[in-house]
Design a protein around this nucleic acid. Sequence first.
DNA 1: CCAAACAGGACCTAGTTGGTCCCGTTAAAA
DNA 2: TTTTAACGGGACCAACTAGGTCCTGTTTGG
Lengths: 155, 155
Amino acid sequence: MLRLSKLTDYAVVVLVRLGPEGAEPEVQTSPGIAAATGIPEPTVAKVLKALTASGLVASQRGARGGYRLNRPLAAIPVADVIAAIDGPIALTACVEGSGSECESRGFCPMAGRWDPVNAAIRDALTGISLADMQVAAVPRALRAPIAPRLHSASL
Amino acid sequence: MLRLSKLTDYAVVVLVRLGPEGAEPEVQTSPGIAAATGIPEPTVAKVLKALTASGLVASQRGARGGYRLNRPLAAIPVADVIAAIDGPIALTACVEGSGSECESRGFCPMAGRWDPVNAAIRDALTGISLADMQVAAVPRALRAPIAPRLHSASL
DNA sequence: CCAAACAGGACCTAGTTGGTCCCGTTAAAA
DNA sequence: TTTTAACGGGACCAACTAGGTCCTGTTTGG
């Protein structure tokens, strides 16, 4: 069902956490974010590495190092986050990366057919920023404390 | 990368194949479609079963039975096909179906956050029909005959 | 000089999915 | 009435992918 990788979900959480709690972009450490979000530290580190590689966050090495946002949340479309973690946004069906040609090469009726769909999804994902997702989150006080909803939401 | 299931891809191929070659909705058999499309017969059967269950196609049992479209291609949005094969369209991250509550229940910052994203994707997918995908396909004569593109297309 | 934190891998496990097969039921045709 | 072609609905197996962990550098502030 159009599975989004868990890592991408984590990435959004981490990025929002990196967002201005105060005003200035404060540097936060990977262990600190892990403690604050409840996500295991190695996983947080993995996510932050990917986000750094794609330029969404900047890193500071050494003691008292950490991460900070390169852009405000409002300037980060969801599409960028997904692209950073999951790679290019495209509805793929054929096994990509196989490098080999399509087996039903001569008469494959699908070539290029998903392009408009991909474009539509890309547009939709580019139009929503992390700031939008931030406000979309249900306020903590309104959520059931014990056995609440799953993260996902059906359409 | 927003993976679409292979079965869904097959479903589109099969549905387009079921579309009016002539004018009237002719009944086609599962083996016949398999032969015409190059998709293995058991897989075609599986796809058609799902499509029948969701009401996109109608089935006729018995000898000289087969399948036919319930609606014209133009009236079948891609969203319906995906929903028929992959289930409800939603960007899921948490393992759904687990039934258990979210482990970081008290302070999970993601609850409901993907809702606007899901809505945007649903809208995008509802706005594109199989007829649109049909015309989007590159004419056979223009495709490289030997080792052409993959089905997927990056954005 | 030491400690804290990032960088960049390798690696293992588990879950999902793709794909196949089998058997029962239906219904048209011989 | 018998036969045959096709759908219906599972069970089942195998391969792949991704989630998650860990280890070993390298950097840099105290």
